[in-house]
Computed example of a mutant assay.
Amino acid sequence: MKLDPAFIWTAFVSLLSAVPTTLFITVVSVLAGFVFGTGIALLRLYRVPVLSQIATGYVTFIRGTPMLTHLLLIYFGLPAIIDSAAKSIGSSFRSVEIPYIAFALIAFTITASAYLSEVVRSGLLSVNRGQLEAAHSIGMTTPQALRRIVFPQAFAASLPNLTNSLIGMLHGSTLAFTVSVVEIFAKAQIVASTNWKFFEAYIAAAIIFWGLTVLIEQIAARIERRINVYNRGGVA
Rank of each mutant, 00 (worst) to 15 (best):
L3H: 14
L3E: 03
D4F: 13
P5V: 14
A6S: 15
W9R: 09
T10G: 15
A11G: 14
V13S: 12
P20A: 12
T21P: 09
L23G: 08
F24I: 08
T26F: 03
S29D: 02
V30P: 00
L31P: 01
A32Y: 07
A32G: 07
F34A: 10
F36C: 14
T38Y: 04
R44S: 03
V48H: 07
P49N: 09
V50D: 03
I54L: 15
A55Y: 03
A55P: 03
G57K: 01
Y58L: 06
V59K: 02
T60M: 08
F61I: 13
T65W: 08
T69Q: 07
L71W: 05
Y75R: 08
F76I: 13
A86L: 01
A86V: 00
I89A: 00
I89P: 03
I89V: 15
S91G: 06
S92P: 00
F93C: 04
F93L: 05
R94M: 11
I98Y: 04
Y100D: 15
Y100P: 01
Y100L: 14
A102W: 06
I106D: 05
I106G: 02
F108Q: 06
T109L: 11
T109A: 12
I110Y: 02
I110T: 11
T111M: 08
A112E: 08
A114S: 07
Y115P: 07
L116N: 10
E118A: 11
E118F: 10
V119T: 13
V120Q: 11
V120Y: 04
S122Y: 07
G123T: 10
R129T: 14
G130S: 11
Q131K: 10
L132F: 10
A134M: 12
A135L: 09
A135W: 12
A135D: 11
I138Y: 12
G139N: 08
T141Q: 02
T141E: 09
T142W: 14
P143V: 04
A145P: 04
R147T: 13
F151L: 15
A154F: 05
F155R: 01
F155C: 05
A157R: 12
S158V: 06
N161S: 15
L162E: 05
T163F: 01
N164C: 06
L166G: 02
L166T: 09
L170H: 04
S173P: 01
S173G: 04
T174S: 15
T174I: 09
F177L: 14
S180G: 03
S180D: 03
V182E: 03
A186R: 15
K187M: 10
K187N: 11
A188S: 09
A188V: 06
A188R: 07
A188T: 01
V191W: 04
A192F: 04
W196V: 13
K197N: 07
K197C: 00
F199T: 12
A201L: 03
Y202M: 14
I203Q: 08
I203A: 09
A206D: 06
A206M: 13
I207G: 01
W210M: 13
W210E: 00
G211F: 09
L212W: 05
E217F: 05
R222N: 02
I223D: 05
I223Y: 03
N228D: 15
N231D: 00
G233A: 07
G234M: 08
G234E: 11
A236H: 04
A236R: 14
